[in-house]
């Protein structure tokens, strides 16, 4: 029995996964790119090399507005999540006793595994007019009328922040426990205060972890349809919501494709801007 040449054999192992990725990811992606250059005349699709879908972005106010809304929400969510998650990761890494750390971390990220439809619905329960927050505040006598919390940008941001605080706590914790305690000890021995140690030693050393987590947050947040759709109401639409409107009511696949490409362009731009500190292989 003759064995096939090793090189061919290796290729045979890789081929199924490679073909799958080519057929169901690369090809659809290229078709989507071509689709973004096509136009819709009436209801018929005309293939071509038109930039009309992209110029529409600057011409039609609601499209440009959606890009702005998406950017504002995503940036707010990223900053707030990092600011809230860092102390949490810090406390779990340096204040919680060693033997409880793994349990504390597991507990802190357990709701991360709720389906995002269910998680957004759960926030609706909490924030609704007759929901938990309003009822609690009213029974405490802090407010006399229910406050509108659901179907606002605040609700969308809260739903997102909840999710990403858990994700970032995990990535920042992983970064913090990798630090040798000697750095802290050395800084302290040299007379640095706790704050100075943090500002000049710990923070710079954990910056790659923060940026990596923030980048993940940005990417996942800007592409999400479910959270703003359930929690944000219909007063302002994000780019994924506008894409879904194009697919549903109008069946305008060219415009939907162009918007998807724009989303990817934004993510790529953010990647380039943060590449200096990104350590994606360390996740």
């Amino acid at each position: 029995m003759s064995r096939p040449a090793p090189r061919l054999q290796g290729a045979g192992f890789v081929a199924p996964a490679l073909l799958w990725t080519l057929a169901f990811f690369v090809v659809p992606f290229l078709v989507m790119g071509a689709m973004s250059l096509a136009t819709l005349e009436g209801r018929t699709l005309v293939w071509g090399l038109s930039l009309a879908n992209y110029t529409e972005l600057t011409e039609k106010a609601y499209l440009w507005r959606a890009v702005m809304v998406s950017m504002e929400i995503t940036l707010t969510v990223t900053v707030v999540s990092v600011v809230l998650a860092y102390p949490l990761a810090w406390i779990i890494a340096f204040r919680v006793p060693q033997r409880w750390q793994r349990l504390a971390l597991l507990l802190a990220i357990l709701p991360f595994w709720t389906s995002y439809v269910v998680r957004s619905y759960a926030w609706l329960l909490v924030l609704a007019r007759e929901g938990v927050v309003n009822q609690t505040l009213m029974s405490l006598g802090l407010i006399s009328e229910p406050v509108t919390l659901a179907n606002t940008r605040f609700a969308t941001v809260t739903g997102f922040v909840h999710f990403f605080v858990m994700l970032l706590t995990l990535t920042i914790y992983a970064n913090l426990v990798q630090l040798s305690p000697n750095y802290r000890r050395a800084a302290m021995d040299l007379g640095a205060s706790a704050f100075q140690t943090f500002r000049h030693v710990i923070l710079p050393l954990t910056l790659p972890g923060i940026v990596t987590g923030a980048f993940l947050t940005f990417v996942l947040c800007i592409g999400d349809y479910v959270t703003p759709q359930i929690l944000g109401g219909n007063t302002e639409l994000t780019v994924p919501q506008v894409i879904m409107v194009q697919l549903g009511r109008r069946a305008d696949f060219p415009l939907a494709s162009a918007l998807a490409i724009v989303l990817m362009a934004i993510v790529t731009l953010v990647y380039i801007l943060s590449a200096r500190w990104l350590r994606l292989d360390r996740i």
Binding site: Q9, G10, A11, T21, F25, P28, M32, L247
Partner: peptide, 27 residues
Amino acid sequence: HVLPGSALIRGLLIAPLTVSYLIVGLG
């Protein structure tokens, strides 16, 4: 196995991770 272009293949296999689910689904 030593394969030609293995870095490229690895990159290609990992690529869908960097694209949002909405875009994968739309394509």
